[in-house]
Amino acid sequence: MTKRNKIIYWIATGWLSLGMVSTGIVQLLKVKEEADMMTHLGYPLYFLTILGIWKMLGVAAVLIPKFSLLKEWAYAGFFFAMSGAVFSHLVVGDDAKALFGPLLLLTLTVISWYFRPADRKAVSVNQQLVNSLI
C-alpha cells in the first residue's frame, strides 16, 4: 500500500468513524431533533436505538485490527444505512441540505472501504489458495 493510499484511508476512516459515533450517540440519546426527523421520515422511534447501537459496533469493527469479514459487514451496514437515509429524505421531499450528512457519510464509507489496507480485506478461500501456490 502506498503512503498516499494509507493517508487517504486513515483520513476517510477517521472522519467516517467520528461521523458514525457522533450520530450514533445522538440516536441513542434520542435527541429531540433526531426523534423529530425520524418521525418525519416515517420510521418508529425504536429505530434510533437500533441504528445507534449498530453504528457504535460498526465503528469498533472497522477500527480494530483483524476480523476482516466483520469489517466487510460493518462497511455494508454503513452503506445500507446511509443510502437508505438518502433515499428516505428524497422520498419525503426533503431539500438538499437534509441529504448532505448521509451523502458525506456514504462517500466516506466508500472511500474508506476502497482504500483499506490488504490486511483489513476479507480474502476468499480461493484467493488464499492461489496466493499459497505462488
Rank of each mutant, 00 (worst) to 15 (best):
T2Q: 03
T2A: 02
K3S: 08
K3D: 03
W10G: 04
I11T: 02
I11H: 02
G14L: 07
L16T: 00
L16Y: 00
L16K: 02
S17E: 07
S17L: 04
L18M: 05
M20D: 02
S22N: 03
T23G: 07
I25T: 09
V26M: 14
Q27M: 11
L29V: 11
K30C: 11
V31C: 09
E33P: 08
E34R: 07
E34A: 13
M37D: 10
M37H: 10
M38K: 12
T39R: 14
H40D: 14
P44Y: 15
L45D: 15
L48Q: 15
L48G: 15
I50F: 15
I50H: 15
M56D: 10
M56H: 10
L57E: 07
V59H: 09
V59D: 11
V62L: 09
L63C: 10
L63R: 11
I64W: 14
I64V: 14
P65R: 10
K66S: 12
F67C: 10
F67N: 13
S68W: 10
E72F: 04
W73A: 04
A74C: 04
Y75R: 05
A76C: 04
A76Y: 04
G77V: 05
F78S: 05
F79E: 03
F80R: 07
S83E: 01
G84S: 05
G84H: 03
A85P: 04
A85Y: 01
F87D: 00
S88H: 05
H89W: 01
L90Y: 04
V91I: 12
V91K: 08
V92N: 10
V92R: 01
V92S: 06
K97W: 01
P102Y: 03
L105K: 01
L105R: 05
T107C: 02
T109M: 00
T109L: 02
T109K: 00
T109Q: 00
V110W: 00
V110F: 00
I111M: 04
W113C: 05
W113I: 10
W113G: 07
Y114C: 08
P117T: 08
A118W: 09
A122V: 03
A122F: 04
A122N: 06
S124G: 02
N126F: 06
Q127C: 01
V130D: 14
V130F: 08
N131F: 06
S132N: 15
L133P: 14
